[in-house]
Write a protein that binds this DNA or RNA. Structure first.
Lengths: 332, 332
DNA sequence: CCCTGGGATGACAACGTTGTCAACGAGTTT
DNA sequence: AAACTCGTTGACAACGTTGTCATCCCAGGG
């Protein structure tokens, strides 16, 4: 920039004004500066600007896995909102590891992101308190934070799950199984709760042997299906608590050539092309990402935290039941 | 940092030394400093460090769409390699728009990324020349850059496509169709070339009516299938040039209750659960991302560009044919 | 005893930008 | 003609860090 100023025969400050599109600059000088900029291939140094202004034009996005379709769609939605605000996005994958989440979040803070969007992996987030007090807004998505108060965007896990079970009940099923993720995962717990509530409302007793909670794997799925289908009164329908479980169950059912009324929580690509089509309770990751980003930018614009700021919000995004065949198989 | 120095009763520089883990610091002072750091919740300001050092510990990743499974897997691979190098990743989606690609790339450069990984959308990349000469290494992935020389990581598109056609030929097909993306997309062209080569090697004449090149959409797919299956000598097999086309074809075939020997280029999730399973020529987006990132970090470590640097490399990553049923349907 | 070497520590400038404030000139008012 | 306003321009400091260099002190050798 110094060079540009010299080349254009003006002061540093005038170049700065031109670069930032400030108004009170003589047109001749402006064009001279612009020409010098083009000629020298000048590009403003964002670090210096950042250092001076204290804002980086950057947010951090911390998810479980960038490659997971659910999160990658969410990620894209965040990116699109960020673009509207002239902001770039750092993305990082926590791999469901609390330490890694913490390291990444603090690395983001060291880079002075203007805000953070986090899908929490760990259960403790008090490490973020100093940062939040220092004025970095944080919005959590998909799961609430562990031990602090903050904005959260959630799926209506319980309602969606209840809806899925009600759908199966409506098709005459009375023995409905549930296979969900490990119980310490928030969404897994909520979905199980929805399942229980639906059964309860229908006056059906909860049966332990119909429920499995474990991280999805071929082995655990096979075992779960054994339990579901093996007893004296086997399940005729099944709600899968997440898409990885759903896929795993579909594979295992195909292997056994067994058919079962099935509703999956969270959509899977190509679900419509299966035989029968896969009925799902669809989440809306795009809406979640967009909501999180919008809320975050609101907070960023809002300025200083503290008692004056609006209290933390919890936004719940609804689900949509998409019948495609597998959930409409009638009870025998 | 100034505050830390004051609190610990040492100079600024000593704090800096402690923070950076330099060796020549008295143990007592070091622990005093560390204590002050913990107490004050000090976090080093990356912008200032960056400004001083000229390196940001950051790379830019520019893809077509973060939400596309192919790219999101690639993205994760890049992230993992970057983590090994203590580097964060800016991700951006060009949405197949050359201007947007350019804006994002230049925004990354303004933020002084240490390097760029780009899936090119546009066909001209000379706008990057000043940046590259200024020492920012750039690695292209999936498609070669338009009008500059640079490192590229490619899939063996032609070979994979040939392999897919040969597979269909081996199952007795002689009328094999090809539906690919718009011809201006590099990978689409290469895959078509592989298709032609395979036919040629088998002594089969190329037939215009069996080939469609268009961006995938329900309408264009329906039309393509009409042409393929409508004539006097309809196709008995089909190679789909990319996964979106494959999905679109599968939907259209399901709608028509038509069956056709089918090989898809690029894998799709749940391909094994379809009836019949989907045979594909699988790419390896993870390997591509990892290769690109490794090459980029080599360049970054290599230092100054110019005649001393190693010449641009082109790395080709092989494909894998995965037979699952749809490609093994015999010719009638 | 002085001198040398080396480890520990600090003072200071510099990175590139922008906010603040002062200066300047031209036009307008009193 | 003096005072005043307003738009334009520039000088300068400051953001927080680190590289360079100087200084200091202590141990060990001559």
């Amino acid at each position: 920039m110094k060079d540009v100023a010299a080349a254009a025969g003006v002061s540093l400050k005038t170049v700065s004004r031109v670069v930032n599109g400030e108004s009170n600059v003589n047109d001749d000088l402006r064009s001279a500066v612009l020409e010098s900029i083009a000629q020298l291939g000048f590009r403003r140094n964002a670090s210096a600007r950042e250092l001076r202004q204290g804002r980086s034009g950057t947010i951090g996005l911390l998810l479980e896995d960038v490659a997971d379709p659910f999160y990658s769609i969410l990620s894209r939605a965040v990116e699109d909102v960020a673009r509207e605000h002239g902001t770039m996005v750092f993305a990082g994958s926590s791999a469901e590891d609390a330490d890694r989440e913490r390291d990444l979040a603090l690395a983001f803070c060291e880079r002075r992101v203007d805000g953070l969007i986090i899908v929490p992996a760990g259960s403790s987030h008090s490490y973020l308190l100093p940062e939040m007090q220092a004025g970095i807004p944080v919005v959590f998505v998909d799961r609430p934070p562990g031990d602090i108060e903050a904005d959260v965007i959630l799926t209506d896990n319980r309602g969606g799950s209840r809806r899925g079970v009600e759908h199966l009940l409506a098709h005459g099923h009375r023995r409905i199984g549930f296979i969900g993720d490990a119980p310490e995962i928030y969404t897994a717990g909520e979905r199980l709760r929805g399942y229980r509530e639906a059964l309860e409302s229908a006056g059906i007793a909860f049966a332990d042997e119909l429920v499995t909670q474990a991280p999805p794997s071929a082995a655990s799925t096979a075992e779960a299906l054994d339990r579901l289908l093996g007893g004296p009164s086997p399940a005729t329908a099944l709600l899968c608590g997440n898409s990885r479980t759903t896929v795993s169950v579909l594979r295992e059912l195909a292997r056994r050539s067994t058919r079962l009324a099935l509703v999956g929580f969270d959509d899977v690509e190509l679900g419509d092309l299966l035989q029968p089509g896969l009925t799902v309770v669809a989440q809306d990751p795009g809406a979640m990402g967009a909501a999180a980003a919008r809320l975050l930018f609101q907070r960023i614009a809002g300025g200083s935290p503290g008692p004056t700021a609006a209290p933390p919000q919890t936004v719940t995004i609804g689900t949509r039941l998409i019948p495609r065949g597998s959930g409409e198989l009638a009870a025998p």
